[in-house]
Design a protein around this nucleic acid. Structure first.
Lengths: 207, 207
DNA sequence: GTCTATATCTGGATAGAC
DNA sequence: GTCTATCCAGATATAGAC
């Protein structure tokens, strides 16, 4: 046969295949519920083979958690960077919400895994993920702070608390979002409206 | 003077003791991470004794999930019922957020367990919890709908979506709330302001 | 109502063949 | 780079003593 010696006769799964399978399973079933045997089967290899690529289960989840945050941060960052420097506050805010929700809901096995299982992993794994988390949080805080300085956000709004509210609300969409009933961008636009304007009817009286 | 508090000397632990211990552990560590041995130890009995009271681990978690929803529903319901029939919309809304957050953050081992692990339990257990969930959701939907009919909430706000946003945002506080830095009621009041009025400064293009 | 002891299974992890 | 085979710890659940 013309088959050239050692190289890839049967498709290699490799790190990427294992990570993809693991992210999907972790996100759907939780950290404790997913075994290495399940991951191996989903990836198309045997359990023992995983240890050629990763030292432990915690090693796998650590990489997934980091990749999940980087995916949202990258998506949001790119959309904000694409705006003109003097873009209206509403456009900046919309870019953030659209970026976060699209990364999370539409191509986000890693991101959704992060949201769902961060609270379940061993403390050491959680700590390892903190720097990447903090970088994304700082990025958002800087953005919001700029909007407030520009006078677009009320000066009496506690920005840290608002950021926590915002991210919590966005991440919670994971639990009920159904792509068949309107896309992530439309959902983001609805949220922009509520967060910026509130739901209260602007009448003269208070009832 | 006996022994320093805690564990039963020969007092009976019973169902309640097991449920309390389990709710605390499940909420903190996740469903898969908590074993019956851990629950037993926390309750002050041995693992085998659990089976006198419960048929299975799923049996325990099912009761905890139901109790968690009932606790919030009860707290919110009581606070709303205590208002006069013609209370301003803002008061009703505040009662909902305060009730939900207090139940969740201040005396809510069962409620927080529900929020954290609902997504991790076996499908059969999740299904068993659905009726109680739906009852709370309907209660909130009816309240919001009444506010909208009264003209207090803008007519172009999708109430189902707003309810999902609201509950998601409230439940997410579990991940970062620190009782040492301001109570649940103060947090609720901040959220009321943002949800009702939005964060946008009222410059010139609004009203 | 709780104990001890144990059956049975499944998990993470390792060693060595190919 | 993946397989097979296996060790060992820890899980749920059961049985019977007290």
């Amino acid at each position: 046969m013309a088959l050239s010696k050692t190289v890839a006769e049967s498709a290699e799964v490799g790190r990427a295949g294992i990570l993809d399978a693991a992210a999907l399973l972790f996100g759907r079933q939780g950290y404790g519920a997913v075994s290495l045997r399940m991951i191996a089967e989903a990836a198309g290899i045997k359990a023992g083979s995983i240890y050629y690529h990763f030292a432990s289960k915690d090693d796998i989840i650590t990489e997934i958690l980091d990749a999940g945050i980087r995916a949202v941060h990258g998506e949001v960052g790119a959309r904000v960077a694409a705006l003109p420097a003097d873009a209206p506050a509403r456009d900046v805010f919309r870019a953030v919400l659209r970026g976060h929700l699209c990364a999370l809901l539409e191509h986000g096995d890693y991101t959704s895994a992060n949201v769902r299982i961060f609270g379940q992993v061993p403390p050491a794994v959680r700590d390892a993920n903190l720097p990447v988390r903090r970088a994304y949080e700082s990025f958002l805080d800087d953005l919001l702070s700029e909007l407030q300085v520009r006078g677009a956000i009320r000066s009496d709004v506690n920005l840290t608390r608002f950021r926590l509210l915002l991210i919590g609300a966005l991440n919670a969409t994971l639990e009920w979002f159904d792509p068949q009933r309107g896309g992530a961008e439309a959902l983001a636009d609805d949220y922009v409206d509520i967060f910026l304007n509130g739901v209260l009817a602007q009448t003269g009286d208070n009832t």
